[in-house]
Amino acid sequence: MRNFTRLIQNEWLKLTKKRSFWVPVAMLAAISVLVTVMLYKFSTNVAEVDSAAQYLASMLGASGLGQFAAILAVVGTAGIVAQEYSQGTIKFLLIRSRSRGEILASKYIAAAGYTLMMTLVAGVSLYAAGGFAFGFGGTGAQWADALQSGIYGFVYSLVYVTLSFMMGALTRSTGVAIGAGLMGSMFGGIVIFKDFYKYFLFPNADLTIYEKVGPPLPGMSIGFSLTVLGVYMALFLAAGYTGFKRRDVAG
């Protein structure tokens, strides 16, 4: 177990020691502040917002800044597998006494950690900016809502990070990995009104929809969506693992 934690530590250091690590983080913080200022000055929708916690609850989901956080998390983690190939460091990684499964798993956990960090960055910067605009603090119920939005926002990001992770492991291309993650999160806004569409990934990714507007298609519920997401993510990881494990590493 200690060995595996050290693999995760390696992956985390590879992500964070890059100077470009701070770019998505800074962008997310900046956008959070900017959006809050804009909403506060120009929007009437936020008139009834009376605390930063309530503001968080409305903004952390995919319909708020969650989508933006997801995109940046995809950008930040898309290279986690592909770059090992482009840098040639994959050989350095695979000729150690660790299985390919362990290596891929440590990478996925680091990517999930990065995603969580982005959700937290969005949360903290929205709370700080929202505090100045609407007053700090909030009621217990508002905080519970904020936490729920945060979790839903994280799940939304993780779904597309997982999709992008699989594409990176299968194609060894950072570009394709980013593309897949971005395309996926863009499809989320489109709903095809056919029954089969509820089994697709896209209408299920944003769980906040059940609170805000109700099920996008008849027969969908939060439990249904969670099951669909779980199945897709398991499939993505299995596909990524199979590709990564079987591949001949040449060149």
């Binding site: 693999l7 390696n10 250091l13 590879k14 020691k17 100077r19 840098q87 050989k91 000729i95 150690r96």
Partner: peptide, 28 residues
Amino acid sequence: VGGIIENPEFYPYMSGFDNLKQAARMTD
């Protein structure tokens, strides 16, 4: 086994020591 396969490739944005640390964390 210790090896260099074709070119010795490292994480360019890390120091030599940090690259060795990376390798060390993969061993027991």
